[in-house]
């Protein structure tokens, strides 16, 4: 599904290399987690994949179902099935949450040559999806993320994911700012979307989230590279011993 090869990325504005050769393959139906200390390049990876300005790919490639996504506009990547759940969802005053979602869904469908969803069908769809995430109609009517609590913003991200039904979901620190109950709600939302045709890349600092969204594969990222890959037990190891041991082990090996 998602295939990243030897990806090197630097900041456009300054001569600072952030990713230094990332290799990663997420298959359909798989959940991969990326953990790593601050500044290791986890969020940069998510931004580069979704097409945010300010980064320059100096080497390597990234494909989604065989299609090169690095040359696509952000909206084309979305239409191709890529979704990024933001670490800091953006507040957009004046744009209604429903209007936003319907516009997005129909824009994607149009780009794929599919028929647009009518207002009535959309209403039905969103009510059903919102209900399971405990998002009330008042939240749907408000401007995008305006006045939402941290937990509400993250739930709103998952709602968008549920409505847009992407093939490849990247969750950038979706657990940050969540209390235990909200984490449960968000995780349930994500787990409900797990299926054989969909891949997930879950970026997180903490193992906690991975108790709820159980990964198939865990990667440790440090200094712009994936330095260790293992099963879900790797996350537990990090939780217990921190990153220092793993990093020391690597240095010892080098």
């Amino acid at each position: 599904m998602l295939n990243i090869k030897n990806l090197h990325v630097k900041l456009e504005e300054e001569d600072k290399q952030i990713l230094k050769g990332v290799n990663l393959e997420v298959g359909a139906g798989e959940v991969h987690a990326i953990m790593g200390p601050n500044g290791s390049g986890k969020s940069t990876l998510s931004y580069v994949l979704s097409g945010r300005d300010g980064y320059e790919v100096t080497e390597g490639a990234a494909t989604l179902n065989g299609e090169d996504i690095l040359d696509m506009e952000p909206e084309e990547r979305a239409a191709a099935g890529l979704f990024l759940a933001f670490q800091y969802p953006v507040e957009i005053p004046g744009v209604g949450n429903m209007t936003f979602l319907r516009t997005a869904l129909n824009a994607q469908r149009k780009a794929r040559g599919e028929e647009e969803v009518s207002a009535a069908d959309f209403l039905k769809l969103i009510r059903e999806k919102a209900k399971s995430l405990k998002i009330d109609s008042e939240m749907l009517k408000r401007p995008v993320n305006m006045g939402f609590s941290g937990g509400e913003k993250k739930r709103n991200e998952i709602l968008q994911m549920a409505v847009l039904e992407p093939k490849m979901c990247i969750l950038d620190e979706t657990d940050s700012g969540l209390d235990v109950d909200a984490m449960k709600l968000v995780s349930d939302g994500v787990n409900a979307l797990r299926d054989a045709g969909r891949g997930f890349l879950v970026i997180t600092h903490y193992q906690r989230l991975l108790n709820h969204i159980v990964p198939d594969v865990v990667h440790i990222m440090a200094e712009g590279r994936i330095v260790k890959t293992g099963g879900k037990e790797l996350a537990l190891e990090v939780e217990e011993n921190g990153y220092a041991d793993i990093l020391a082990e690597l240095e010892g090996a080098a």
Partner: peptide, 30 residues
């Protein structure tokens, strides 16, 4: 136009020009 808002809309599949129009209308809403 707020770049973060523009990128957010685009990342959900809204083409740039349409996203810009949405933000212009939002600006005028008050």
């Amino acid at each position: 136009i707020d770049d973060d808002a523009l990128f957010y809309l685009r990342s959900r599949g809204v083409p740039e020009s349409q996203a810009q129009d949405l933000l212009v209308l939002a600006f005028l809403a008050e």
